[in-house]
């Protein structure tokens, strides 16, 4: 079995011109934390992650280390809402992070399982030649494939 056999494909992807608000709403609808971002040719540009978005909404000072918690800051919900409103119409290109890991169609499930075990929520499967996005693989795809009837 290879990554191609277990990945979810086709997989919803974002364009870098999509707005932050639209992208986030779509992710909430389909209940995912991360979505791949592709260019017009379908090549992977990077990942748009809700946790990364939260990081950009926080005060910058809190993300550089040195502040262990923000319990002393008041009115944080309004603060975060204001920040969200300020960025929701911006294109997501400024918020796209390079994918920490990608795998190729022929990558072994063991390698995929190791990446997921080490903390990746979902790993893009891309063509080794042109970097075109083929699908995504998350823990549920791997476990689902292992439990599938007829498998060995």
């Amino acid at each position: 079995m290879t990554a191609l056999a277990i990945c979810q494909t086709p997989f919803p992807a974002l364009k870098d011109s999509d707005t932050v608000g639209d992208a986030a709403r779509r992710m909430l609808e389909i209940a995912v934390w991360d979505l791949p971002v592709v260019d017009a040719a379908g090549r992977l540009i990077g990942m748009f992650k809700l946790t990364h978005l939260l990081g950009t909404l926080l005060p910058k000072a809190a993300t550089i280390g040195g502040i262990s918690d923000l319990a002393f800051v008041g009115d944080t919900l309004d603060y975060l809402r204001d920040r969200m409103r300020a960025v929701e119409d911006e294109p997501i290109r400024a918020y796209v992070a390079e994918a920490d890991h990608v795998v190729h169609p022929e990558t072994s499930p063991m390698e995929v399982a190791l990446l997921l075990y080490r903390g990746e929520r979902a790993v893009p499967v891309v063509d080794a030649g042109d970097h075109r996005l083929i699908g995504m693989v998350a823990a549920r795809e791997v476990v689902g494939a292992l439990l599938a009837k007829g498998g060995r």
């Binding site: 005060p59 910058k60 000072a61 809190a62 550089i64 280390g65 040195g66 502040i67 800051v73």
Partner: peptide, 14 residues
Amino acid sequence: VLLTVPVTMLITEE
């Protein structure tokens, strides 16, 4: 400075 600068930056941001 590692202890105080992040707090200063938080305050100046506010």
